[in-house]
């Protein structure tokens, strides 16, 4: 890919395994994706599909005994999956910012928002106290907190849920990272607040030319925020492409079923389209295509051979139907 040079993050054939006493499970297999500066990649999939795990692997935050057992992760021109814990600690916060679902886990209730911001800023950027505080105020202003000069001295509990999530975003931005990984950043928020946070993320991503990986299971959020979308199923990437294509002309049968199962705001139908069955557990993934027990288009080849991710148009998907042959 010619665009690969411009990629802020480039994940190539990533594999993660968790060795267990009875067997080793592989929550992630063959994940390849890249995100450019100023681009939001949405990552969707059912719970357990591997969305969060992908974000954690990139940040070097896999819980033990989990480990990266294959592939490469490049941050700009630097390979980071081989770095040790100390080097990764330097990268987190400085070059990769994180936003999690629950703002309270990222904020310390005992310190003012300002002191947490200035501490993070000074940890990563060589700045004096006064300068760091001015930057903290500016960051709060950037994320749309009114009266930031006063708010900077308030404690987290004095903010509402939506404002706390803004503070977490300010914290993630404090060292001007190249990449932000946002894992379900709006799931704990009310719809009216959620819309504000999405538009904020989008504006900041474009203004600051940050690459954003936005993990969510909410297709509405994806539709309004993402430039491209990656769909995960049972630990693999099964479709990736521009947001309009993946949401409105999906090519993989799973994405097609998923999109059709969402109740519409526009019109009412008698019965929702449903994908029967459920996603397999990691220790019971079927041979061939992992989606084959639930797929309406399954053919004999799907039961034997696993389809690879193949580029089709400006996207890619892993399905024999789209590989030029028959399923």
């Amino acid at each position: 890919m010619g665009e690969a040079e411009k990629a802020v993050i480039d994940v190539r054939n990533l594999q993660v395994e968790f060795p267990g006493r009875r067997a080793t499970v592989t929550p992630l297999s063959d994940i390849s994706l890249s995100i450019r500066a100023g681009e939001i990649l949405g990552v969707v999939g059912e719970s357990g599909a591997g969305k969060s795990m992908t974000g954690l692997a990139i940040q070097g935050l896999l819980e033990r005994p989990g480990r990266i057992s294959g592939g490469e992760i490049w941050l700009g021109n630097r390979r980071i999956d081989t770095l040790d814990d100390r080097a990764m600690e330097q990268i987190r916060g400085r070059e990769i910012g994180a936003i999690f679902q629950d703002p309270l886990t990222s904020l310390n209730p005992l310190f003012t928002v300002g002191s947490q911001l200035t501490e993070t800023i000074r940890l990563h950027l060589s700045m004096g106290k006064v300068e760091a505080r001015a930057r903290a105020v500016q960051l709060l202003r950037d994320v749309g907190i009114p009266a930031p000069e006063e708010r900077v001295d308030h404690y987290p509990h004095q903010f509402s849920g939506g404002m706390r999530q803004r503070v977490v975003i300010a914290l993630a931005l404090s060292a001007s990272p190249k990449l932000i990984i946002a894992d379900e950043p709006t799931t704990a928020l009310d719809v009216s607040i959620q819309a504000q946070i999405i538009s904020l993320l989008r504006r900041l991503c474009k203004e600051k030319q940050t690459a954003v990986m936005l993990v969510t299971h909410d297709m509405g959020v994806i539709a309004e925020a993402a430039d491209r979308v990656a769909v995960m199923y049972a630990g693999r990437l099964i479709e990736i492409g521009p947001v309009e294509q993946v949401l409105h002309a999906p090519r993989h049968p799973y994405t097609q079923g998923l999109m059709a199962s969402i109740p519409s705001l526009g019109a009412r139908v008698e019965k929702l389209n449903q994908i029967d069955g459920s996603m397999p557990r990691l220790d019971a993934i079927p041979a061939g295509c992992a989606f084959n027990p639930r797929c309406v288009s399954v053919g004999p080849r799907c039961l034997r051979e696993r389809p690879e991710l193949i580029a089709v148009g400006d996207g890619a998907n892993a399905c024999w139907l789209n590989a030029g042959g028959t399923a």
């Binding site: 719809v191 959620q194 989008r202 297709m219 309004e224 925020a225 519409s264 705001l265």
Partner: peptide, 10 residues
Amino acid sequence: TIPNITSPRR
């Protein structure tokens, strides 16, 4: 404010 899939307001 509901994020809308069919007519997203980006």
